[in-house]
Design a protein around this nucleic acid. Structure first.
Lengths: 232, 232
DNA sequence: CCACTTCATTAAGAATTGATTAAGAAATCC
DNA sequence: GGATTTCTTAATCAATTCTTAATGAAGTGG
């Protein structure tokens, strides 16, 4: 039995586009162009994941998200028009599990749907990128407050340094190449520049963490491959 | 087996340029200068990613994109002449996954191709995930963390050594010639060099595993043929 | 047993890769 | 708009890693 995805977006073409893609991937879909009937649907049917637009005429996505959360605990992915940080933080607080900004790439959305479903079904799976608080040994990274501390002592990181560390931490143990890291940090803009600066940022982070390249406690260099962060 | 990239652009030089670059990267290519035969190709062959020009005489790229999407769900990268925001939104809505504006830097396009394929495969290649950890007897190879251990004791392998061992392990029991191993490790660059160094790498691995050539526990030499890894 | 092939071993230098540093761009903040 | 922070670039340096080539040992067939 395929997973059922709920789609709510007042922009008909967008909703239908998502619908098409998810159906092509073998999911069952329930598509609504306004919030109220979507809510009714949730009460009656078994939904595995919801994709909610934030900007909607009758109810805004945040309210809808809250209402859904009162009823169910399946993953929620929010669609937002711009890369609005405030929206992002608010949304995560309200119970959304992931964020996609419009205009989005359909296959990326599909990928995130798959990722969320996988994570939801297997609790032991790696933590999601949107996980607010990541703790690895004495290292704490709070995406919500954008704070970071090592052994209880606050680390003052620049934006790029923070992103880099968060990405490494949320893929704990996994080796990531400079290419992958660049792509994660800068999304699409990265192609216009090289990725040599990753090593510099790594160095700065290590410096602030009091780590040396020869004897790292957290950030390890894997020669010829990339970097990884773990607590071994 | 390399990924196959479909290229459609009525400007012959552009199409051929892209073709050349992608072939140099080891991709298989199908290049067309008009849309119709490209569509036929998609129906018949296994394509992993498409690069479509927007401005074309017979069908415009948007229409082509939609038609492709009705059939397949691999990533699509669109080429646009101007940096037109409206086009971008429209294109993404229609199902393109990325955008490159002309004139573009060939290596940037290549980078985007790689990025899209990586993202797509990450969520669509189940086998890749399950192969992350290979266990043969007391030998453990973790591709994700790039760690390797024998009887619980960590082995510190160089990149090439790791690749070599991983390839042998993932073809457990099968004899592989030096040629095959070279090809697997270095993909296409391998033709530029010989493959005599395989024996040296094998030796280093054996040394680190505490194996001797006369009495190997895992890596066996098959005279006149190659090497194999098993637990007999 | 002897030529011939194939693999093992070794060591050196060539090539690659990451670290480090500093300076100039770019972005951000007041 | 000027000052400050942050980021990127480029050049140099240090280390790791790879390849080559020479020599020796082991298998193979006559």
């Amino acid at each position: 039995m395929p997973d059922t995805i709920l789609i709510v977006d007042d922009e008909v073409e967008i909703a239908d586009l998502i619908d098409l893609y998810l159906q092509n991937e073998g999911y069952a879909t329930r598509t609504f162009y306004e919030a109220q009937s979507a809510l009714d649907c949730i009460k009656q049917e078994d939904i595995d994941l919801a994709i909610l637009d934030i900007m909607m005429p009758d109810i805004d996505g945040f309210t809808l998200c809250s209402k859904v959360r009162e009823l169910r605990s399946f993953p929620i992915i929010m669609l937002t028009a711009r890369d609005d940080v405030v929206d992002k933080i608010t949304g995560l607080t309200l119970g959304a599990d992931d964020y996609v900004t419009k205009p989005f790439k359909p296959l990326e959305l599909v990928a995130r749907v798959k990722a969320q479903l996988r994570r939801y079904k297997k609790y032991n799976d790696e933590p999601a990128k949107s996980e607010a608080l990541i703790v690895i040994g004495g290292l704490e990274i709070n995406s919500k407050t954008h704070e970071c501390s090592l052994d209880g002592k606050a680390l003052k990181l620049t934006p790029t340094e923070f992103s880099l560390l968060r990405i490494l931490a949320s893929n704990q143990g996994a080796v990531m190449s400079s290419d992958e890291l660049s792509q994660e940090i800068w999304q699409d803009e990265y192609f216009e520049k090289g990725n040599t600066s990753i090593t510099v940022h790594i160095r700065h982070i290590r410096e602030k963490m009091g780590e040396s390249f020869e004897n790292p406690r957290y950030i390890k260099t894997v020669w010829g491959v990339g970097y990884k962060l773990d607590n071994n």
